[in-house]
Design a binder for these strands. Structure first.
Lengths: 352, 352
DNA sequence: CTGTTAGCGCTTTCAG
DNA sequence: CTGAAAGCGCTAACAG
């Protein structure tokens, strides 16, 4: 390759709207209209213009468009869990709802610490976004204030335990944890541990629910709450269960903050020869695809993650449409899915 | 809330650069410089300006900046696997490399079909991106041409079996499959199946490698190649193995296109009471976190996914820096990780 | 170190 | 239905 070729390629003369206009013998604005509001241009002209556009390989400049129209068509999605398995389904929901529109989605993954959260949020603001979907790691007043001052509609998702600045879609994590914990009690487990990873708001809420239910029975033991501040993972689940059983062999069940922890816990039980569910019960959270497939299958709490994403995007799109929405909190509910890993009282203990 | 309040909030008078300039008693360009190249402004002025910026809550308008400077600072990541577990590590790599820069990342998830791929690509082009990271589902000439005409550096990632338009980072999927298949042969398996999901380029390359190795031994049987065109998942792995063993009970091993299929296959074996690895060997792909934790642990092929993301972003950033790069193909290599699920010849068959 | 002058490429008026 | 004028908010290029 001739040196310099590539550089030149990346600096190709850009075809602009007026270039097209000139070539088509019309004014720039007409080309602009032919592209964005075809019905406002006579069929004949429209066709000519579109042909020229095609021929010249014209690509509109979004920055110029955004500057002139004050509409970036951008939806910002801000979540510290962007690179988490649980968020995949949420993304799919968002993408599916947005697909048919001309909006784009831009994801951002704030690092830990609320400052980065604020920084990324400001960054979105600087792009004149059409809407923002926000997943908070924790709530603090400064951030809430920033959200309240957003230049666009904002939907806070995943958790609805907190009054949102504007709109929220999610579930009540405390209730979900209560249901899971009660289920374990119902199955006859008594020394129930909780396995977690990072303590964000939602995890905290789940701990609250867990604790409340056990305390009511006089069964809560803070020593049985284990966690490590890192990404949740199957390996971490195995590790935590190992720590638990080493320190407290009498523990007889675990409520895990996520199904990957639950799966790791299951593997660790198998490794130790501890029978599930007879000798140890495991309840996960999220109902990941493998929960129902595992052997024994894993009891879990199903969250409507896809729906949360879909609804959030939908709210944004509607809010964009008519400019005003009543403050909204949408609780999409959860579902406890009892499976083999806690089926102590039912007649088929399926340990191999 | 008073009707209309929210709408007004979202249309707040925007503070512009000249507002700040006026308030600070300097010219707009000085404020601009104080923000972007602080060292070019005298300390005293700089401080005053930054204070005013803070006070007025000024947020720069990226669209205007991009338009004026022809630099959007945007890296576009285009992949049909955006919402796949395997891509999470790649994202982390990209994010980590980009974090310290002032570049932003915008992800896009083309639907199936090469047309959508081209559409999304054009869409990135319209934003004057600083660089593009592309994961192709399949290679076709039209798309290659489009990539070649990109207005910015482009890195194609994951697969290096194809000469890229410009730069590529990934591994040789054919070789990886060959290594896995040979490993299964070495362990004494003879009736080896392949379990897959969607047949993208990489999957096809892996099938090629698989086939080549088995054909050389006269052991290839097309009936043992099973797949369903859908998202890969643990459930799908279980389903495919069920189909396999129902139709061909004599099959004695499976090379799976992904560890989730492998895990599903493992569960299905356990469900059927088919011992792993003695009666059936399982080799996965990707080395997801659970492969080493499963019981029995899963043999897999480790891909440097994080590194692929990191290097891709790095290449882009360097290319952005000096404008020109030699055409590059970086093969980051893979690693076969033998574990219990294929340990037929070693002395510890760990089935429970 | 600071300011002036242009203009990025497009869309919004407001006229025909 | 089509066009002319003006300017979105910012930064490059040149001056001082």
């Amino acid at each position: 390759m001739i040196p310099g070729t590539r550089r030149r390629r990346h600096r190709q003369e850009k075809v602009t709207l007026s270039d097209v206009a000139q070539a088509a013998g019309v004014s720039a604005i007409t080309v602009s209209r032919a592209l964005r509001e075809p019905e406002k241009v006579s069929p004949a002209l429209r066709e000519t213009i579109l042909r020229v556009v095609e021929q010249m390989g014209y690509v509109p400049d979004m920055a110029a468009r955004a500057l002139a129209s004050k509409d970036s068509g951008l939806i910002g999605v801000l979540t510290p869990g962007l690179t988490s398995y649980a968020f995949i389904a949420v993304m799919r929901g968002i993408e599916d709802r947005v697909r048919s529109t001309d909006l784009r989605i831009q994801y951002a993954n704030p690092g830990d610490g609320r400052e980065d959260d604020a920084r990324k949020l400001r960054f979105f603001y600087s792009q004149n976004p059409a809407g923002i979907i926000h997943v908070g790691l924790q709530h603090d007043p400064a951030l809430d204030e920033l959200l309240r001052r957003a230049p666009c509609p904002v939907v806070e998702i995943m958790d609805v335990s907190h009054t949102p600045a504007e709109m929220a879609v999610g579930i009540d994590h405390r209730q979900a944890a209560e249901a899971a914990t009660r289920h374990l009690l119902d199955q006859g487990y008594r020394r129930i541990a909780m396995l977690g990873a990072r303590w964000d708001t939602r995890a905290q809420r789940r701990l609250d629910g867990f604790k409340a239910v056990l305390e009511a029975e006089g069964l809560f033991d803070p020593d049985l709450v284990l966690s490590i501040d890192s990404y949740t993972s199957v390996g971490l689940g195995a590790h935590l269960l190992d720590r638990l059983l080493t320190a407290f062999p009498q523990a007889d069940a675990a409520f895990c903050h996520s199904d990957d922890l639950a799966l790791g816990a299951l593997f660790e039980c198998q490794r130790r020869g501890r029978r599930v569910p007879t000798e140890f019960g495991i309840c996960g959270f999220n109902d990941f695809d493998y929960a129902g497939v595992a052997y024994p299958s894993l009891t879990s709490v199903r969250l409507p993650r896809y729906e949360i994403g879909y609804r959030a995007a939908d709210l944004l799109i509607r809010a964009t449409g008519d400019g005003r929405q009543p403050a909204t909190v949408i609780d999409l509910g959860f579902q406890l899915i009892p499976r083999q890993s806690t089926a102590r009282t039912t007649p088929q203990p399926p340990m191999c």
